[in-house]
């Protein structure tokens, strides 16, 4: 049997703030299998973003272990972690985090630069993914020429372009109005239907209800982990 995509055991994360320690994660254990669609909810400051950064290999736990696709990431070098982020993880941020000076196409192609993919192939693959998220007619627009929803779809396309085994999204609709937010969520539903593994952080209970599984984080701990019927709409 294939190992779970995410296998966290007792993950802790402490931040030093002068004299005091801030304990953002206090032992999170979590398994996510291939093809799951997980929503993480919890109050502000409960540690959701901290957990997502660790799951995305942008940050390392202070304690506990994390296996991604069966591989422990604690001992990976910087270059190896970069490669993991590049090949296995697609990260979507609340604030889009697109390159302001670059076109949608170049933004989406960016991860492929670090994968060592030649330019022509990069552009072809980026165009394909942009078409897939419905932006085939916006390839040469810069972010400031796109609406918020379109920007987030560019960001989703960028996360998808390396065909990662794990999609992470930290409040992807947080900066969008309800209608455009729904468009982006529609995209996640489609990706999930296509077999993608998705972990999504949200404040919005309505959004959380779309996922098949809901994890509640409270004060750095997993408070509840519920399978649920997806409510579409």
């Amino acid at each position: 049997m294939a190992p779970p995509v995410i296998d966290c055991r007792g993950v802790e994360r402490r931040f030093r703030m002068g004299e005091a320690d801030v304990q953002a994660l206090r032992g999170v254990s979590l398994r996510v299998d291939r093809g799951e669609y997980v929503a993480i909810v919890g109050p502000s400051g409960s540690g959701k973003s901290t957990l997502m950064n660790i799951l995305g290999c942008l940050d390392s736990p202070s304690g506990g272990s994390y296996r991604l696709d069966g591989e422990p990431v604690e001992r990976l070098s910087d270059a190896e972690l970069a490669a993991v982020r590049n090949r296995k993880i697609g990260f979507v941020f609340q604030t889009f985090n697109l390159m302001a000076r670059q076109t949608a196409l170049d933004n989406v192609a960016l991860p492929l630069v670090y994968a060592g993919v030649p330019r022509v192939e990069r552009r072809a693959r980026a165009r394909e993914v942009l078409e897939h998220v419905g932006l085939g007619n916006r390839l040469d627009h810069r972010p400031d020429q796109l609406s918020g929803g379109q920007r987030q779809r560019v960001a989703v396309a960028r996360a998808l372009v390396t065909r990662p085994s794990l999609m992470l999204a930290d409040e992807p609709t947080g900066n969008l109005d309800q209608a455009t937010g729904r468009d982006v969520l529609q995209l996640f539903d489609e990706l999930h239907a296509g077999g993608a593994t998705i972990v999504l952080v949200t404040h919005d209970p309505q959004i959380a209800r779309r996922a098949r599984r809901r994890i509640e984080i409270m004060d750095g701990r997993v408070q509840a982990d519920l399978a649920q019927e997806a409510v579409l709409g």
Partner: peptide, 13 residues
């Protein structure tokens, strides 16, 4: 720089 690192840039890149 943060974005580049997030999508796979190494320190050396």
């Amino acid at each position: 720089i943060g974005v580049r690192r997030a999508v796979g840039a190494r320190k050396s890149d």
